[in-house]
Amino acid sequence: MSSLITKVRAKQIEQLLENGKRLDERGLLDTRELKIEQGVIEKAEGSARVYLGKTEVLVGVKVETGEPFSDTPKEGVMTVNAELVPVASPRFEPGPPDENSIELARVVDRGIRESRAIDTGKLCIEEGKKVFIVFVDVYVLNHDGNLIDASAIAAMAALMNTKMPNYEVKDGELKIKQGYKPLPMRNHPITVTLGKINNKLLVDPWLEEESVMDSRITFATGEDGNICAIQKGGSGYFTPQQILEASKIALDKAVELRKKLKW
């Protein structure tokens, strides 16, 4: 992504990194302050607003019914969509999703899907005909870097906040009963992204760091400590050693975050 950052600023970031420092005075492996508010949109079945430093992401979950995919007739469906709305940054323009928002949505989707976070087997109403469809819509409200981590955490927080209608199936007809139950979950993936600037790895890059970094790498890990999704991005590269180092850092950070969030 082209940037407005001046070459001077880029140099400053690089020089600070040489001494293990960052512009916002964090250590290389420190994340920004994380704040989660759940249930902020009453009309959505689930929602969460996440602040990661100044980055702000709102996720709304809607649950509807529809047809399952033909290769998974007994399972509910989850789809993730991301919108980089123009309120979030002077660089975002209205219009259909570009490659950045599609990548964002697909990386968030992969973490949730591959860790089998949602128990989709419990979302079947009538095999092959009717299942619940969980729409996860990521709305970026303020872009200050590391949208992937903020969106992934917000998506999980929103799913954990999601209420499903109580229902029963009679002769293939869906009957909604009184009350709600939580969306069936069985894993809580945590996503950690690292940036690489001048061969230095740093956790949770913010906007100015993102605009000078060579590349980034994202790891999503499940409760058991296994990795369930990886995505390298940016026009640089990683050496095999850097990948191993990054994966270790990301796994440690995920454990730390998991403790803090009690997920």
Partner: peptide, 12 residues
Amino acid sequence: VTLLQMDGVLSS
């Protein structure tokens, strides 16, 4: 390494 992606479940 200029591309690395993963989906599925793997230990480190």
